[in-house]
């Protein structure tokens, strides 16, 4: 029961976040909305796992948390450098 209430609250917030992503005047607003949306996805996967009595869902939540973070950083890096590998020049690596 309590899980259903929490899931409703999170879904409502996801709707709000999504509308910010659609409205968002700048690109950064949209990235912020997507990042926040990912956080809520992790939460709702965890809560949903408890709601259906299958806490194995937590592994999926964990993987989603990882992907969310890496995805946000990758998009930002792409915006800042226009390239995913170009933050350091190649001659800085010694191997």
């Amino acid at each position: 029961m309590i899980f259903a209430v929490a899931a409703c609250a999170i879904l409502f917030t996801m709707a709000l976040t999504l509308s910010r992503g659609i409205l968002g005047p700048t690109t950064y607003d949209r990235i912020l909305a997507v990042n926040s949306f990912g956080t809520k996805t992790v939460l709702i996967i965890a809560v949903f796992g408890f709601m259906t009595g299958r806490p194995d869902f937590l592994d999926i939540a964990f993987v989603y948390a990882l992907i969310n973070f890496v995805g946000t950083i990758a998009v930002l890096k792409f915006f800042e450098y226009g390239d995913l590998g170009g933050a350091r020049s190649p001659d800085e690596f010694e191997s």
């Binding site: 309590i2 899980f3 209430v5 929490a6 609250a9 999170i10 409502f12 917030t13 996801m14 709707a15 709000l16 976040t17 509308s19 910010r20 700048t26 950064y28 607003d29 912020l32 909305a33 990042n35 926040s36 809520k40 939460l43």
Partner: peptide, 29 residues
């Protein structure tokens, strides 16, 4: 605890919509 947490989650969503510019929205998130 879950109800209070849900309240803060919803507050974050509302703040994301209500606050006027990008840098203030960071605080809401």
């Amino acid at each position: 605890t879950i109800l209070t947490g849900s309240f803060f989650v919803v507050t974050g969503g509302v703040g994301l919509l209500r606050l006027p510019d990008f840098f203030t929205r960071l605080h809401a998130v």
